[in-house]
Each structure stands twice: as C-alpha cells, then as structure tokens.
C-alpha cells in the first residue's frame, strides 16, 4: 500500500511469562486515524508504548516512516521526535511554567531557536484558548487544561504521528469535551493518529478505522460504521454491550 506511515508486523510483547501482545499486524497510512478499542488490560497501552519504543518489544518489527523502532537509546530518541505521545496521567513538568513546558524539548532536543518555538506555541495556545495561561504552572491548571497543554507540547515537536492513550480517562466529565475537540481538530488537519479511548461516540466520529484488541490479538479491524452497527465477533458485541444502557424501570404508577 502507498504512504504507509507506521507499520507493525508480528509484534509480540511479553512481561515475564505473560504474553500481552501476541502477533499484532497493523499498518497506519499517512493522515489516517486509527482508534484502538478493547477491554481494560488487553494491551492497548502496551501497543502504543511499543510503537514509540517506550516498551522494548519481544519480537516483530515496527517501522516508522520505513525506519525501525529499535531500543538503541540514541537512535530511538531521534526517532521519537517524529512520534508524539500523550498519556492518561497529567504529565506536564511541574517545575516549569506552561510556555517552558512546551518549548523545553524543541529547544533542547531539536536545537531550534526559542523564539521560533515560542511563536509556534503562541499560535497553538491561542487556538485552544490557553494563551493567558502561558506563565501559569501546571498545578494552577485544571485537568482538561493540562491535557490540552500536553497535546500542544507534543505538537510543537512537529511530529508525523500522534499517539493518544486514554487522554480523557482521568478527567472530570465536563472537561472531556474540550480535550476531544482539540483532537478532532487535529484529525481534520490531516494528522496521522493512533488513539486509545473509552469514549465510544468520539471513537465513532473520529476514526477512519477501528481496531479491536482482545487476548493479545487484533480480532476486528473495520470501519467505524461497520464496527459499531454490526460487529463481526461475539467479543466485540459483548464489549460494546458494556457501554449500552437499557431502560430498566417502567414509570412509577
């Protein structure tokens, strides 16, 4: 296929004797948005962490732009500049203000001029409505604001791929939207993304393709409409069922 941005083949990951990922094959095209779903503990985070080399793989290959994601520490640091990641836990650097959180890596890792990076940061902060917070420290921000900053911090490295690992899972419900909107906007701008989420409506809206992971394998790989309306496997049906609520009580008479 043309324009493969990220190619995972035969990926196996074990923790001790536990095989968490057992032969994952997945390719993500440029500009494609892939949403990874699956029950808790099925290895979604592990898959993402293998994709940017945070977790060394047990077997298989992962190619980013045709380059192997190795565990060689020098090379992987280089490669990670192309692949941004945002986590579930708020992971801003507590000793730096918002602007310095964003500019640290582009300046120190990519050796870009601070001024140029600050211009990028300004544009992005304004777009998500956090420009006034540039001098604030992470502890002064709400969870939703912190996650938006974390996204911008990753974007300022000008990555080709973004990985999102349940970035709204730790948020209060009313803050979920403001973060998901930023990701939706990113999708419109054509960013290649792999997203793990438990927000089903969001998944349906943003995905070009849904990957359903269970027992260390991809058991479904289909367009969102098909996955949500007509899942092919019983496991996916059961999984989707856990998000559905039925009216149990009839009216009180």
């Amino acid at each position: 296929m043309e324009n493969i941005q990220l190619q995972v083949s035969g990926l196996i990951k074990r923790f001790g004797t536990e095989t968490v990922l057992n032969g994952i094959d997945l390719s993500v095209r440029k500009g494609e948005v892939v949403v990874v779903l699956g029950p808790s503990g099925c290895g979604k985070s592990t898959l993402l962490r293998c994709m940017n080399g945070l977790e060394p793989k047990s077997a298989g290959t992962i190619l980013l732009d045709g380059e192997e994601v190795t565990s060689d520490s020098k090379k992987i640091a280089q490669l990670r500049q192309k692949i941004g990641m945002v986590f579930q836990s708020y992971d801003l650097f507590p000793h730096k203000n918002i602007m310095d959180n964003i500019t640290l890596a582009p300046v120190k890792v990519q050796k870009r001029s601070k001024k140029e990076v600050e211009q990028d940061a300004e544009r992005l902060l304004k777009r998500v409505g956090l420009w006034e917070k540039r001098k604030a420290y992470p502890r002064e921000l709400s969870g939703g604001q912190k996650q938006r900053v974390a996204i911008i911090r990753a974007l300022c490295m000008n990555p080709e791929v973004m990985l999102f690992d349940e970035v709204t899972a730790a948020l209060d419900p009313e803050m979920v939207r403001e973060v998901l909107d930023v990701i939706l906007e990113l999708a419109e701008s054509g960013m290649t993304m792999v997203i793990v989420t438990h927000e089903m409506q969001f998944a349906r809206a943003i995905a070009d393709r849904i990957i359903f992971l269970d027992n260390g394998k991809i058991v479904e790989n289909s367009p969102p409409e098909l996955f949500f309306t007509n899942p092919q496997t019983q496991r996916a049906k059961d999984f989707l069922q856990t998000f559905a609520y039925e009216k149990r009580r009839t009216a009180i008479n």
Binding site: A77, D91, A154
Partner: peptide, 10 residues
C-alpha cells in the same frame, strides 16, 4: 516517560 516521548535522551 513523557520526557522520553518528547525525544529526550536519558
């Protein structure tokens, strides 16, 4: 993790 994910070396 987040420092590594931003491409920082050890």
């Amino acid at each position: 993790d987040s420092a590594s994910a931003l491409g920082m070396t050890k």
